[in-house]
Simulated assay, not measured.
Amino acid sequence: MRFIADMMLGRLARWLRLYGHDTLYGVEDDDEIIQVALQEGRIILTRDSCLAGRAKKLGAEVILLSSNSLGGQVRELKGLGIDFPELFPASARCPKCNGPIKRVSKEKIRGRVPEVVYWKYDEFYVCTKCGQIYWPGRQWGEMVKMDRRLRD
């Protein structure tokens, strides 16, 4: 499934990317959201009933969410059969730009991360689109904790 999330759903969009879902975010204009959804076969995620109604009339697939919280939104999507697989860096998408993430050798990131990070970790991932580098450090640990809360 490919999604496009409206501007009210930034946190959800980042988490969908972490779960490996191709999710566009950052398009501010409702007409453009509808156009992109129709052209690219994306499902519109929104809390805006006016946008949802207009999009449906034009033939776009829409999920109208009612919850304002990330946990509630994830529960709604799970209830519709959207998969939330185990968090794993190699299957995630970049939470910043939506690009695919791939594992890279430690040698390839030398000089691109702080020295302390380079020597402390052996596992690195890079976004193939924006070049952002990720490693299973403290921030990844916090995401895993949040993932557990979302699963409960």
Score class of each variant (00 low, 15 high):
Gly26Asp: 10
Ala5Val: 00
Asn98Ala: 12
Val113Trp: 01
Gly81Val: 02
Glu123Met: 08
Lys145Trp: 02
Gly79Leu: 11
Thr23Ser: 15
Val116Gly: 13
Met146Gly: 07
Cys50Asn: 15
Gly41Met: 06
Ile44Lys: 05
Glu123Trp: 11
Ile82Ser: 15
Glu76Asp: 04
Gly53Ser: 12
Arg148Gly: 13
Cys127Arg: 00
Ile109Arg: 03
Val104Cys: 08
Ile109Leu: 08
Cys130Thr: 05
Lys57Pro: 11
Glu76Met: 07
Trp15Asn: 02
Arg112Ile: 15
Ala55His: 02
Ser91Gly: 09
Arg138Cys: 13
Cys97Val: 04
Pro89Asp: 07
His21Glu: 03
Glu107Val: 01
Trp140Lys: 02
Trp140Phe: 11
Asp22Glu: 08
Asp29Ser: 11
Val113His: 05
Leu12Ser: 00
Leu65Tyr: 03
Pro85Phe: 06
Trp140Cys: 01
Val113Cys: 04
Pro100Met: 07
Val27Thr: 13
Glu61Asp: 13
Val144Lys: 10
Thr46Lys: 08
Ala13Glu: 06
Gly59Val: 04
Cys94Tyr: 01
Ala5Gly: 04
Ser49Glu: 14
Pro85Tyr: 07
Ser67Ile: 00
Pro136Gln: 08
Arg11Gly: 11
Glu32Pro: 07
Glu76Gln: 10
Trp140Arg: 01
Ala52Pro: 04
Ile4Arg: 09
Leu51Lys: 07
Leu12Cys: 11
Cys130Leu: 03
Gln39Ser: 11
Val36Gly: 06
Ile109Trp: 00
Lys129Asn: 05
Arg149Met: 12
Ala90Asn: 14
Ser66Ala: 14
Gly59Trp: 08
Ala60Glu: 02
Arg151Cys: 14
Ala90Tyr: 14
Asp22His: 15
Cys94Ser: 07
Asp29Tyr: 12
Trp119Arg: 15
Leu16Pro: 05
Phe84Gly: 10
Lys108Gln: 09
Ile101Tyr: 05
Asp152Gly: 15
Lys106Cys: 13
Val144Thr: 06
Gln73Pro: 00
Pro114Tyr: 08
Arg151Thr: 01
Arg17Ser: 07
Lys96Val: 10
Glu28Leu: 13
Gly59Thr: 03
Pro114Thr: 12
Leu45Glu: 07
Asp22Ala: 09
Asp122Thr: 03
Ala5Gln: 09
Trp135Asp: 01
Arg2Val: 00
Leu150Gly: 06
Cys94Thr: 02
Arg103Phe: 10
Asp122Ile: 01
Ala37Gly: 06
Lys106Phe: 08
Ala60Tyr: 01
Met7Ser: 09
Leu58Gly: 09
Arg103Cys: 13
Asp147Gly: 11
Leu150Ser: 05
Tyr134Gly: 00
Arg14Asn: 14
Val36Asp: 03
Glu28His: 14
Asp31Trp: 12
Glu115Lys: 05
Lys57Val: 11
